[in-house]
Amino acid sequence: MRITCPHCGERDRREFTYQGASEIMARPDADAGVSAFADYLHLRDNPAGDTRDMWYHDPCGAWIVVDRNTVTHAVTGSTLAREGRT
Protein backbone atom coordinates (compact mmCIF):
# COMPACT_ATOMS: atom_id res chain seq x y z
CA MET A 1 0.00 0.00 0.00
CA ARG A 2 1.37 3.38 -0.97
CA ILE A 3 0.08 6.75 0.20
CA THR A 4 0.81 10.14 -1.32
CA CYS A 5 2.07 12.81 1.06
CA PRO A 6 1.24 16.24 -0.40
CA HIS A 7 4.79 17.35 0.49
CA CYS A 8 6.89 14.28 -0.18
CA GLY A 9 5.04 12.42 -2.92
CA GLU A 10 4.14 8.75 -3.05
CA ARG A 11 5.61 6.86 -0.11
CA ASP A 12 5.49 3.42 1.41
CA ARG A 13 2.81 2.80 4.01
CA ARG A 14 5.47 2.14 6.67
CA GLU A 15 6.15 5.89 6.79
CA PHE A 16 2.59 6.63 7.95
CA THR A 17 0.62 6.21 11.15
CA TYR A 18 -3.15 5.76 11.05
CA GLN A 19 -5.28 7.91 13.35
CA GLY A 20 -8.93 7.30 12.47
CA ALA A 21 -11.87 8.46 10.40
CA SER A 22 -11.82 12.02 9.05
CA GLU A 23 -14.99 12.89 11.04
CA ILE A 24 -12.54 14.08 13.69
CA MET A 25 -12.02 17.16 11.46
CA ALA A 26 -15.68 18.23 11.85
CA ARG A 27 -16.01 19.16 15.50
CA PRO A 28 -19.50 20.38 16.49
CA ASP A 29 -19.98 23.92 17.73
CA ALA A 30 -19.31 24.40 21.43
CA ASP A 31 -23.03 24.77 22.16
CA ALA A 32 -24.09 21.78 20.03
CA GLY A 33 -25.01 19.67 23.04
CA VAL A 34 -23.87 16.46 24.64
CA SER A 35 -25.39 14.07 22.11
CA ALA A 36 -23.72 15.83 19.17
CA PHE A 37 -20.38 15.51 20.94
CA ALA A 38 -21.05 11.88 21.82
CA ASP A 39 -21.69 11.18 18.13
CA TYR A 40 -18.59 13.12 17.13
CA LEU A 41 -16.42 11.14 19.53
CA HIS A 42 -17.85 7.66 19.23
CA LEU A 43 -20.01 7.11 16.13
CA ARG A 44 -18.19 5.93 13.03
CA ASP A 45 -19.31 4.35 9.79
CA ASN A 46 -17.73 1.10 8.73
CA PRO A 47 -17.93 1.40 4.97
CA ALA A 48 -17.21 -1.33 2.46
CA GLY A 49 -15.89 0.96 -0.24
CA ASP A 50 -14.78 4.57 -0.28
CA THR A 51 -13.61 5.94 3.03
CA ARG A 52 -11.69 8.96 4.21
CA ASP A 53 -9.31 8.90 7.14
CA MET A 54 -6.48 10.70 8.87
CA TRP A 55 -2.87 9.62 8.54
CA TYR A 56 0.30 11.11 9.93
CA HIS A 57 3.42 11.15 7.78
CA ASP A 58 5.98 10.37 10.48
CA PRO A 59 9.23 11.62 8.96
CA CYS A 60 7.88 14.94 7.63
CA GLY A 61 5.26 15.64 10.31
CA ALA A 62 2.26 16.35 8.08
CA TRP A 63 -1.31 15.33 8.94
CA ILE A 64 -3.12 14.27 5.81
CA VAL A 65 -6.65 13.29 4.86
CA VAL A 66 -6.55 10.20 2.66
CA ASP A 67 -9.27 8.91 0.35
CA ARG A 68 -9.09 5.17 -0.06
CA ASN A 69 -11.24 2.17 -0.79
CA THR A 70 -11.54 -0.55 1.82
CA VAL A 71 -12.60 -3.13 -0.78
CA THR A 72 -9.98 -2.60 -3.47
CA HIS A 73 -7.31 -1.03 -1.22
CA ALA A 74 -6.89 1.71 -3.84
CA VAL A 75 -5.65 5.04 -2.50
CA THR A 76 -7.30 7.73 -4.59
CA GLY A 77 -6.35 11.04 -3.03
CA SER A 78 -4.78 12.93 -0.19
CA THR A 79 -4.76 16.51 1.05
CA LEU A 80 -3.16 18.31 3.95
CA ALA A 81 -5.39 18.35 7.02
CA ARG A 82 -4.36 21.95 7.70
CA GLU A 83 -6.24 22.96 4.56
CA GLY A 84 -9.33 22.16 6.58
CA ARG A 85 -11.16 19.65 4.45
CA THR A 86 -13.91 17.76 6.25
Binding site: C8, R11, R14, E15, D58, P59, C60, G61
Partner: peptide
Amino acid sequence: TARSFVGHMAA
Protein backbone atom coordinates in the same frame (compact mmCIF):
# COMPACT_ATOMS: atom_id res chain seq x y z
CA THR B 1 16.50 16.19 0.10
CA ALA B 2 13.92 13.84 1.56
CA ARG B 3 12.39 13.08 4.92
CA SER B 4 12.15 9.34 5.21
CA PHE B 5 13.49 6.41 7.18
CA VAL B 6 16.94 4.93 7.57
CA GLY B 7 16.01 1.49 8.78
CA HIS B 8 13.35 2.26 11.38
CA MET B 9 14.67 5.71 12.17
CA ALA B 10 13.28 9.00 10.85
CA ALA B 11 16.00 10.85 8.97
